[in-house]
Every structure is written in structure tokens, then in C-alpha cells.
């Protein structure tokens, strides 16, 4: 598909104004932009690079891959993995799978929301924590479970969850 260069340049400028450098994903695009069926892979790698997928970036990817922006947005919003907003420094993935549910994941969620003052899917005002519920982390025998930046915490109680968050907050406060 023929790409209108003015459009690409305008899209790049829009990204740069947001502080997002489109050149960072040039390698990904040069490798995958023309490959059929690679849209999900492009979005996954873009999210690895930028941490999230702002709408302007989706528009840029649409231009470069010859897709309609609606299609790219449609794919990005279909899958749970993709985030359209930036996340906190610490991503809390709280397991809400069946085993965790039976063993009290709701009480853990309440404790986290209480402590941080956010709801599921939100990020704290200080940009430290984002809470995401996930369907199953696959560590059912340790339920209830949460994962923070790849580290798993099992057999949680509301108190244990609170103290884990408190120790991260303390560590961050000391680092300042």
C-alpha cells in the first residue's frame, strides 16, 4: 500500500509532542510492517518498548502497516494484554482465578484497594502502583496469589498484602 509521507510525518510529530520517540520502534516496523498477520506481534513489541500503547501510536502503526486505525484500535482493545494508558512503576497482577476466588481473593483486592486508594485497572496518583486483575497466574496451590513486577507472593491474607505494599512504599520513600 502506498503511504502518504505527509501523513506519516504528521503522525510522527504528534507522537514527538507527547514525548514518544517513534524511531524507537523503527526496527520492529521495518521487520514486521509488511508481514501479513503480524499486527499483534507489532503491538506486543511496541508495548515492550513504550510500556503502553497511546492512541497516537496506534494511529502511527496503522499508517505504517496499511491498516485502518479502527482495526488497530479494535485489536488493541480486544486483548487483555494491551494497555492504552501508562502504568505505575509497580504492576500488581492480582489473580482472580477460580482457586484464588475460592480461597479469598476478594478480601485481598479490598485490602489493596483500601491501602492504595485505587480501583482495579487504576494507577495511584504518585505513579507507583497499578492494580490489574488477571484470570489465572497458574500458581493455584499458593492461592490467593498476586504478582508484583514478576515476583510472586502466595498464600496471601489481607494483612500480608498490606505489609507487602507497605514495604515497597517504604523502600521507595527511602530511595528518595
Amino acid at each position: 500500500m502506498k503511504i502518504n509521507c505527509n501523513c506519516v510525518q504528521a503522525s510522527k510529530t504528534a507522537l514527538q509532542q507527547q514525548g514518544i520517540d517513534p524511531e524507537k520502534m523503527e526496527d520492529v516496523l521495518s521487520h514486521y510492517a509488511d508481514k501479513e498477520g503480524a499486527l499483534i506481534t507489532i503491538l506486543q513489541q511496541a508495548q515492550d518498548i513504550y510500556g503502553y500503547l497511546p492512541v497516537e501510536l496506534l494511529n502511527y502503526i496503522a499508517l505504517r502497516t496499511g491498516n485502518k486505525p479502527a482495526k488497530v484500535l479494535g485489536v488493541a482493545t480486544f486483548y487483555a494484554q494491551f494497555r492504552l494508558a501508562p502504568m505505575g512503576k509497580y504492576l500488581i497482577m492480582l489473580c482472580k482465578g477460580t482457586a484464588c476466588h475460592v480461597n479469598g481473593a476478594n478480601a485481598i483486592e479490598e485490602a489493596i484497594c483500601d491501602t492504595l486508594g485505587i480501583q482495579e485497572g487504576e494507577t495511584t496518583a504518585d505513579g507507583l502502583f497499578t492494580l490489574n486483575n488477571v484470570a489465572c497466574l497458574g500458581c493455584c496451590s499458593l492461592s490467593p496469589v498476586m504478582m508484583i513486577n514478576g515476583e510472586t507472593y502466595g498464600t496471601l491474607t489481607p494483612d500480608k498484602a498490606r505489609s507487602i505494599l507497605a514495604s515497597i512504599q517504604q523502600k521507595e520513600a527511602e530511595a528518595k
Binding site: E36, G37, A38, I40, L43, Q44, V75, F78, Y79, A80
Partner: peptide, 18 residues
């Protein structure tokens, strides 16, 4: 990319195709 319905084979194929 995280979608339960992709366990269904025709949905899985759609996902493979991007």
C-alpha cells in the same frame, strides 16, 4: 495476547492472523 475465547480453534486462527 490474553483472550479466553482464543482457546476456540477458529478464534485462535483469527488471532494467529493478527
Amino acid at each position: 495476547a490474553g483472550a479466553f475465547v482464543c482457546g476456540e480453534e477458529t478464534a485462535l486462527i483469527a488471532s494467529l492472523e493478527g
